[in-house]
Structures are given as C-alpha cells and as structure tokens.
C-alpha cells in the first residue's frame, strides 16, 4: 500500500492531488477480493489502522480532482466497514454529497439532511463541523460564525474549531476577535509554534491596516506581534516564517516607536510596555542575519538545511534584497 496516502503533506498541491488520486484504481482493486462471513473474516482480514486512513485520504483527494466514481467506491468501502451510523463516516458522506451537488437546491438538501441528523443527535461533532463548513462555503459567513460559536459553547476544548473561528473572523476583518480565538487555541496547545506565528501575523496585519489610529496603539499591537514571533522562533529553531515576521514587524515597530524619549507611550494598566528601541534594533539585526543565513544555506541545499519551501525562500530573498536597496540609496 502506498505510504504517501497514509500521511500526505498538510497542504496538498494540485499536482500532488492528481498523483494521489491516480493510485485509486489499484488500491480499490486490491480491496475487492473475496470476503468471508463475520466470524471467519476476523481470521483472514489483513486490515491495519493505516488501511482506513488511506481510504479517507484517497476519498478526499479523489473528490478534489473531480473523480466522483472512485470517491464513491472509497465511500462504499468505508460504509460497509463502519456502517452508516459512524459519525466520521457520516461526515465523509456529507462531504461527498456536498462535492457532487450541482446547484443550490441540492446543497440545500444536504444542509437539511445535516440539520435532521443534528436534531436527532446534537452531539454529533463531525456533522456539526461539516454544517459550519457548508455554511461558509455557501457564503453565509455570519451564520457559519454563529453556528461555530454555538459549537464551541458546547465543546470549548476543540482546538481545531477555535482555529477555524479565528480564520472566519480574520476573513471578516475582525482582527481582535481572531486574536482572541487563537489565544484560546494556545491555552489548549501552548507549544504550537505555527499558531504563535499566525498570531503574530494577524497582529501585524491589524496594525498595518488601521493606519489612522494613534501611534501608541499601533506600537502596542506591533510589540505584541514582535513577542509572538519571538516565541515561535524560541519554540522552533531556524523557523523561516517566524524570522520573516520578526524582521518586518521589527522594522515597522522602529518607525512607530518614538525616538529618544523613552516611555513616551502611555500604557494602560496591565499591559507590557513596548520594548526599548535598542532591543528592537538588535532583534531586527538578528532576524536579518538569520534570514540571510537560511536563504543562503537553504537554497544551496546544505546538509541539515534542506526542507525549506521554495516559494518561502524566494519571498525571504526578495525581502532582503528590498532592504539592501534602501541602504544603498
């Protein structure tokens, strides 16, 4: 059985999806051998935990590439193994129906089936999540947010749902709510370095988008972002995303901080004051040199430095080049 279907890359590119779904015929063929009645089938079955993970991933990548027939066969295998009442399989079936629905009427029917299931059993979390996803997909962002908040009321330790809520708020431009949701994720998983970096990114975006507001507030949000990026670097050595964010944030913060007079920014009680200018300058220097090192050694493919995303390296190099140009002028 293919290894890359057991645990595929987190973000599947279209070409990878094609590659994955092309394996469908042979995997489906290998499964449809003879099967004995129940007690005997226990002796002959060769299924492992990975078998069903493979089917699930295959189903999703077939749906992505539009291969509905193969997806249907994967789903049938899952249905015959786990039955129609299994929550996870129910959600996968719902996803299949969403994908093959051609118009809004059919999508509405899928939505009604979700609601019927939830009326019977409101604790069916996979279906509740599908319902939120479908609402979002249909453009009803407000309804999706309300449904998700309700879900989180019932299950406040679901980090995936908090992260989704943060993304929903972020797309609506509600940055402080998005930051709050991501902080909830960090309460559940305090060491997730990518969430720290994401928090820094959202704080940075919120600081740059609200140009009109007073400098003090901008500096405060930016220094929050700076701290988030620092934490993500602390948790993950040579983290390109963290250093990139640290560099642009430090640069922006140097503009926002008042020169000379220390403590000119009034802080409301309980907040940490923004870091002194010298510290920010030092952080900027460190980030620049580290980024240069990562770009140099990462694109040369040195041992221990491989495994950086090509696009990310190019973006980092562009940032460094832009910086150099300014110095020369």
């Amino acid at each position: 059985m293919s290894a890359d279907l057991i645990q595929p890359f987190p973000s599947i590119s279209p070409s990878t999806a094609v590659h994955l779904s092309q394996q469908a015929p042979q995997i489906l063929q290998s499964s449809s051998s003879l099967s004995l009645p129940y007690p005997l089938s226990l002796l002959t079955s060769t299924e492992t935990q990975e078998t069903w993970m493979t089917y699930e991933n295959l189903l999703i990548s077939c749906l992505r590439t539009g291969d509905n027939e193969a997806a249907r066969r994967c789903l049938d295998e899952l249905l015959s193994r786990f039955g129609e009442k299994n929550e996870r399989v129910m959600a996968l079936q719902g996803m299949y129906e969403e994908a093959v629905a051609e118009n809004d009427k059919e999508l509405g029917a899928v939505m009604q089936s979700y609601e019927a299931v939830l009326k019977e059993d409101p604790t069916n979390m996979p279906i509740r999540k599908r319902r939120v996803a479908l609402l979002r997909s249909m453009g009803k962002t407000n309804d999706a947010t309300a449904a998700l908040v309700e879900l989180l009321d019932a299950s406040p330790t679901d980090s995936e749902a908090w992260a989704e809520l943060a993304d929903l708020y972020f797309t609506q431009g509600l940055y402080s709510q998005a930051i709050y949701s991501l902080e909830e994720v960090l309460l559940i998983i305090p060491n997730a370095w990518n969430i720290h970096a994401r928090l820094g990114e959202i704080a940075y975006i919120s600081a740059t988008s609200s140009e009109s507001s007073d400098r003090g507030n901008t500096a405060k949000v930016l220094s929050d972002a700076l701290r988030r990026f620092c934490r993500s670097i602390e948790l993950c050595d040579n983290y390109l995303r963290g250093y990139y964010g640290l560099k642009i944030t430090a640069k922006k913060l140097l503009d926002a901080l008042p020169r000379g007079g220390k403590g000119a920014i009034a802080t409301s009680d309980g907040d940490l004051p923004p870091p002194p200018v010298e510290t920010v300058e030092k952080l900027h220097e460190i980030a620049t040199s580290k980024l240069a090192e990562i770009v140099r050694r990462g694109s040369a493919g040195e041992k221990g430095w491989e495994g950086y995303d090509e696009a990310e390296l190019i973006a980092a190099r562009a940032l460094l080049d832009k910086d150099e140009e300014k110095v020369e002028r």
């Binding site: 999703i60 980090s159 995936e160 989704e164």
Partner: peptide, 20 residues
C-alpha cells in the same frame, strides 16, 4: 500542529474542487 492550519474537519471541498 499543522492540522490547526489545515483543519480537515472544516474542509471546504467545493472551493478545493474549484481551485483544482
């Protein structure tokens, strides 16, 4: 922790199909 960036439970399959 990449699942928190990816969130398969909330996968928007129609958008993914359009993208493909």
């Amino acid at each position: 922790f990449a699942v928190l960036d990816q969130r398969n439970g909330f996968l928007d399959i129609r958008a993914k199909r359009r993208e493909f």
